[in-house]
Amino acid sequence: MTDTGSEVVTYEVHGPTAIIRLNRPQYRNAQNSKVTYALDAAFTRAVDEDQVKAIVLAGNGDHFCAGHDIGSPERDIHESFERKAVIWWDHVGAQGVDSRFARESEVYLGMCRRWREIPKPTIAMVQGACIAGGLMLAWSCDFIVASDDAFFQDPVVMMGIPGVEFFSHPWVTNPRAAKEWLYTGDRMPAARAHELGMVNHVVPRAELEEHTLQIAERIARMPRLGLALTKKAVNQAEDLQGLRAGMDSVFGLHHAAHAHNAEVQGDSLAGVDVKKIRDEEKK
């Protein structure tokens, strides 16, 4: 196993498949900016390596990804970020929307859109928690293979925010399911996600990696250009169904909610942290 120059992401190749793993298991693989750019470097490496025909995104440990880092000691929200997905000024030292909009346009929404366009097939291999920002990472991939103990959740309505930045909910499920899921903040079991079409396969945890790699190897037999053009064709069809425009409109609502929270409560997250989310789940 080799890494990408950062311990927060690992990179390995199995035959024609690159496996990129989030590597912050002590924080349930919560995503900070360091993770974002390590992921981007790993994806770029996989695209550039000719022997890699398919890419699997996974998480080390018990969980795929518990979302954006909103409270670990390594949270880096106030640090400078690279600008690869969008061209904007640095947010460090800026205030209010000037800071939040710049950061989230780049590190969250922009990067997920960038990864959605990776020309090689990408598979999210999900076990355990796939929450909020974790959904964004999985949804950036072409499809999802989940273990039978996986669950999916977007609890940010608790913060007064209408879903995560990469707002795919009505497209990956359906509008009524998306409303119920967001309104309640409940966990969606892998079996239900499969029923709704968000997940392609659900397998026992012990078989997750083997099953995912078998699919990747089957995909790898197809011609590279054919796969890339097919991916572009389906993505374009999805955008014609309103996905990209819908994300843009909801991103504005997302930041209106952040601004409201900051003005009324003095905190853009409305005082919600990991502990409060977990406490709410126990009720």
Rank of each mutant, 00 (worst) to 15 (best):
M1S: 11
S6G: 03
V8A: 04
H14Q: 12
G15R: 08
P16I: 11
I19K: 00
I19M: 01
L22K: 03
P25H: 05
Q26E: 15
D40N: 10
R45E: 05
Q51P: 01
K53M: 12
L57W: 00
L57T: 08
H63Y: 05
F64S: 00
I70Y: 00
P73R: 14
D76N: 11
E82P: 00
E82K: 13
K84I: 12
H91G: 10
V92S: 10
E106T: 07
V107S: 07
R113P: 01
I118E: 07
V126C: 11
G128S: 10
W139P: 00
S140T: 09
F143P: 00
D149K: 02
M158D: 07
W171Y: 14
W171G: 01
V172K: 06
T173L: 11
P175F: 07
E180Y: 14
D186R: 15
A191R: 10
P204Q: 15
E209T: 13
R221I: 07
P223C: 01
P223A: 03
P223W: 04
R224I: 06
R224P: 00
L225A: 13
A233D: 12
N235S: 08
E238S: 12
L240K: 14
L243N: 06
S249G: 05
G252R: 07
H254N: 14
H255R: 13
N261Y: 09
N261F: 04
A262K: 11
V264D: 06
S268V: 08
V272I: 15
V274C: 05
